[in-house]
Structure formats: structure tokens, C-alpha cells
Amino acid sequence: MRGRSSTTTNRPLQIPRMTRPATFFSIQALRGIAALMVVLFHLRIVEGKYGQDGNLLGAMFAYADSGVDLFFVLSGFVMTSIAAGSYGLPRNAGDFLARRGWRVLPLYWFYTTLVVALMLLMPGMANSAYQDQSILASYLLWPQAQLPLLTVGWTLIHEAFFYLLMAVAIAFARERQLPWLLLGWAAATLLAHGMLGAGIAPWAAVASSPLSLEFIAGGLIGLYWRRLPVGFALPLLLGGAVLLVAAMLHLAAAYPEHPPVLRRALLFGVPAALLVLGAVRWEHARQPRLPALLLAVGDSSYSLYLGHVFVISATGRLWQASGLNHAPWQHALFIALTVVVCVIAGWLSWRWLELPLHRWTRTRKPSARTLQAAQE
């Protein structure tokens, strides 16, 4: 179904630069798919820890965290789209950062606080590998040698870096210069990554990470997607999906552990970029109907992404205690039920935490431009 409630904060992206705004439900659908991929990635780990007699989630799902790469491309697309028309004014950069900060930080702080509470009150329930991390750095999304206390927050560190660079562009650049700035950023990233190597400071590792290429690819798609001939849209969408699955299968067969980050950015970033480009161009031209459930998962994808680790940890322990963790059908039931519980918990978090946080800032009816800029 294409109709959505006007009260959602994660409403489908509206692009402001066209006579008839382009509304992309496909962005929400891809967000939902990306979040579910990350859920399956962590479910595979828990199944291996608590299950018996082999895993149903095979080696391919060790690379289901490629949903993160899809998130990064989507983020780049959204950021250059909502920033259209706002370049060259420092105050717009401040507004951009304030909106991004309010969109990302309060819910992240809430779930990080849950980790801190578990560490203090129930140390056995928390991941002891990260108990030496700086709590302040974790809250501030400052790069550290290890993952932040809320492990999935590592992706938000890369997001924050991207937001900062976008804010600089909004403050001082002209919109026509943006493609060259993005390409220059890509070249500088590759040069720094090749020169710096391993053993550098955590902040330098983030700044030189090839994962930035995925944001850049999404940003360029946000600028040029209209130029793609409509006939190429669906083949690119399907080709991106096939290539993403093929990359996961290839890495499952070729690498016992995750590949170097540059190879990851290429193997996962290119298919993700094709998916996003094909999806938005196809939807704009054909306006297909997308499953309402998948759109609902997309609406709550940020809450699902931040909160699913708590659900999976709890259900895994309950599964082990039940003793129903041996037969394949028991594994299948555990996986299916945990995915359902994760989705429900994510939706509840979106409905009762994330959505009120956004409503709290609305003291008056926002303008159309504000609504467009608040999208992600």
C-alpha cells in the first residue's frame, strides 16, 4: 500500500527540487531490508552460541551485516537530496547538524544508557569485551580502538563524520560544486587509506575508511538519479540484489573472516548503489505498490537497528534455558520468533520513544520545507 500516516517522522523521502515532489517509499523498504539483514547477522552469532547440531543460518549470513553498507548508501542519497537548495549559508549548516543530531542521538543515548545500566546492575548480561571502553566517548560517538558500548553504534560514528563534512559543504560551498567535492573526497579517502595503513589513531581510521565511498556513491545518486533512462531502472535494481547476494556467497566461500575494508566497500557498496539507484528511478516512473509490512519495518528501522541486540541476547538465553535448541525445527522456530519479536520491539520503540522525541520539538506546525529537511 502506498498510503502512509501523516504523523510518521520517518515518512518517505520527499525531494524538494521538482515541480511535483518525488516521494520514495522504496527508500523505506530498503531501510527495512537493511535492518532485517543486520538482525539475521546477529541472529547467526547467537544461534551458533546457544544452538546445537549445526546452524540453519549458514556462512552466507556471516555477511548479512552488508545491510550496513546499504544503510550508508541510503544515507548519502538522503543527505544530498534534503540539502538541495541550502548551500552557501553557514546558518543552514547549523540547522542541518541540529536536525541530524536530534534525529540520531537521543534514541542512541537511550539504548547506550541501557548498556551502562546492565553493566552496573547485571554485569553478566553485558558484553564484557567492551567494559573498558570510555562511556563518554561512546555517548559522543568519538572513535575508539574498540566498538562503542552499544556495539552497533560504530556505524553512527561513520554517519557523524559524513554529517560533519556535509555541514561544511552546506556552509561554504555552492551546490554546483558538490559533485566535485564528493569526487575529491573519494580520491582523498583512497589516497589516505593507501598511505596510512594500520596502527593509526581511531579518528584517522574513520576519516580514511573506504566505507566513506558508500556515502559518496549515495550522494552522487541523490544528485543524478533523474538522468538514468527509465528502462535501466528495474534491471539495475534486480542486478544490485543479485550482486549483493553473490558477494555474500563469494565471501562465505573465500574468506573465513571479513575481508579488508576496501574490498568490502567495493563488493557490498556497488550492489547497494545499484539497488538504490534502480529503486528510486523505477518507483518514480512506475509507482509500484510496496508491502505495507515492509514499509512499517522501514519506518521503525532505526529503532530496530539500535534495539535488536537486546532482544536477540534475551531470546538466545531463553532458548538455551528451554532446552529446545537441538532439532532443526527448533532452530527454525527460534529464528522466526526472534525476528518477529525484534520487529515488534522495534516498532514499539519507534512508536513510544522515537516518534514522541520528534513530536516533542514541534511547538508549531512545521513548514513544508522543514518537513522535507527532517526526512531520513
Rank of each mutant, 00 (worst) to 15 (best):
G278Q: 14
L371Q: 06
E257N: 13
L371Y: 06
S66K: 13
G85K: 00
A29M: 13
R100I: 12
L89V: 11
V245G: 01
R264I: 02
Y305M: 00
L57G: 00
G323E: 11
W360P: 02
G124N: 09
V242Q: 01
L97M: 12
N325T: 14
L140F: 03
T9K: 12
A198T: 14
M1K: 10
R11S: 14
Y305A: 05
L141R: 07
H331N: 08
S134C: 09
M37S: 10
G3S: 12
R20E: 15
T315Q: 15
V168Y: 00
T7P: 07
F96P: 08
V78C: 12
L223Y: 04
A35E: 11
Y305N: 02
G197T: 04
T189I: 05
T338D: 01
L262T: 07
S75R: 08
G231L: 01
W360S: 14
G153P: 02
P210C: 02
A29T: 10
R359K: 15
Q52V: 15
P356D: 00
R2C: 09
A173M: 10
V38S: 09
A252E: 03
F71D: 00
T370I: 07
L357R: 02
G269W: 08
T155R: 04
M119P: 05
H326E: 13
R286T: 13
L220G: 12
M119D: 00
A173T: 02
A173Y: 04
A117D: 01
F71T: 00
R263T: 14
E175M: 04
S367P: 06
L290N: 07
L36H: 01
A204F: 03
A252K: 02
A98L: 09
A83E: 00
P21M: 13
Y224V: 04
L30P: 02
V343G: 01
L13T: 03
L333F: 07
R17E: 11
G85M: 05
L107V: 01
G58F: 15
E354M: 07
V230R: 06
V242P: 11
A126R: 09
A35K: 08
P256H: 00
L251F: 14
A292Q: 11
Y255M: 03
N325G: 11
L275Y: 03
A62M: 11
M60T: 14
R2E: 09
A117V: 08
G184Q: 05
A272W: 01
L228W: 01
W347N: 12
V339R: 04
L191C: 05
L306C: 09
H326V: 14
Q131T: 15
A173W: 13
A205F: 08
P256W: 00
Y139G: 10
I344T: 12
Y50R: 07
F71W: 00
A160G: 01
L275A: 15
G194M: 11
L30Y: 07
A22K: 00
Q287M: 05
V116T: 13
A22G: 01
S212Q: 14
V116G: 05
G194H: 10
V39N: 04
R174Y: 05
L355R: 09
T7Y: 04
A241N: 05
W180M: 13
V341S: 15
L220V: 03
L267V: 07
Y50G: 10
